[in-house]
């Protein structure tokens, strides 16, 4: 039995009665489906985790890292499919974590800048995935499209288990390492002088990001991972005034993008991943415009 099954059953107990109160035509019917309960739990879990870690990616100027590791994980998925794996995401996890360690080491040893190493892994592994699929896997099928653009409703218990394990481990380790990670992010030299193991913290961060990205693949797709990892955090930077408030706003923007994304994708019958990414970008656009108008007004008031 999957470890996530009791959780889905438990939350399903609360979600089912909500169906009559939900707006739209198709959306309420979803609340009666077990696969939707799984999808909702998966989406919420990865959004919460991505919100916390995305803020750090942004602060560390590594916004591209999520995208790069997602492409690497696609290579892993392709090899997993070709090898006939039941859950190719575990292959993705292996590839993504190894790439994260290599990128981190290349950066640490100053052999390559962060951007360059990410770009090389990104294109190289995506290409490997496509070539392997073309030769041995019968090309890009609809199954594979699910990994590229995400398909929430196709998440099975095995995938949910992976998402649950990654989420619990990443949130647990962040709880312990949060202050050390923040200190390292602000000023690595000062943190090291204060006695923090900066290098190990960086390695742990890279590996965790790799695992988180893999856990997000089914929800939003390898091509769209950045939409949940970076966009909500970037939107929060526009309204937050402190680190703490930014973290709170990141969660608000992330979770509302997911809820609205799932709602519109079910009503308009579009892919869930692309709709979540689109809503997330629209929210950013609206907040950006609102912010500029507010800035202009306050500047006019206090010239």
């Amino acid at each position: 039995m999957a470890i996530s099954e009791p959780l889905v059953e438990f939350l399903g107990f609360f979600l089912e009665p909500l169906a009559p109160f939900m707006p739209g035509h198709t959306f309420p019917a979803f609340f009666e489906l077990e696969m939707f309960h799984r999808a909702l739990i998966a989406a919420f879990l990865v959004t919460i985790v991505a919100g916390f870690y995305g803020s750090f990616l942004l602060m560390r100027n590594l916004a591209l890292m999520g995208d790069g590791l997602a492409h690497v994980s696609f290579g892993g998925v392709a090899i997993g499919i070709v090898l006939g794996a039941a859950a190719p995401l575990w292959y993705a996890l292996l590839f993504s974590v190894s790439a994260a360690i290599m990128i981190h080491e290349l950066q640490e040893r100053e052999l390559l800048t962060g951007d360059a190493s990410i770009a090389i892994f990104l294109t190289g592994m995506l290409a490997l995935g496509l070539v392997v699929l073309r030769i041995w896997g019968g090309g890009v099928t609809s199954d594979i499209e699910g990994y590229l653009f995400g398909n929430l409703l196709l998440i099975d218990y095995q995938d949910l288990d992976l998402i649950l394990i990654v989420s619990v481990l990443s949130l647990g380790s962040l709880f312990v390492l949060h202050d050390a990670l923040l200190a390292t992010t602000i000023d690595a030299v000062a943190a090291r002088v204060q006695g923090l193991p900066v290098r190990w913290i960086g390695l742990w961060f890279s590996v965790t990001i790799a695992a988180i990205v893999v856990s997000m693949v089914q929800v939003i797709g390898t091509l769209l991972v950045t939409a949940l990892l970076v966009t909500p955090a970037a939107t929060a930077q526009l309204v937050g005034k402190s680190y703490r408030s930014c973290i709170m706003w990141t969660q608000i923007f992330g979770l509302s993008s997911v809820i609205l994304g799932i709602y519109f994708s079910s009503e308009l019958e579009t892919g869930s991943g692309s709709m979540i990414a689109l809503i997330s970008a629209i929210v950013f656009g609206i907040v950006l415009i609102g912010r500029s108008i507010y800035n202009q007004k306050t500047n006019n008031l206090n010239p």
Partner: peptide, 8 residues
């Protein structure tokens, strides 16, 4: 201080 962060 990273410029992309809000912090008191």
């Amino acid at each position: 201080i990273p410029t992309k962060m809000r912090m008191t």
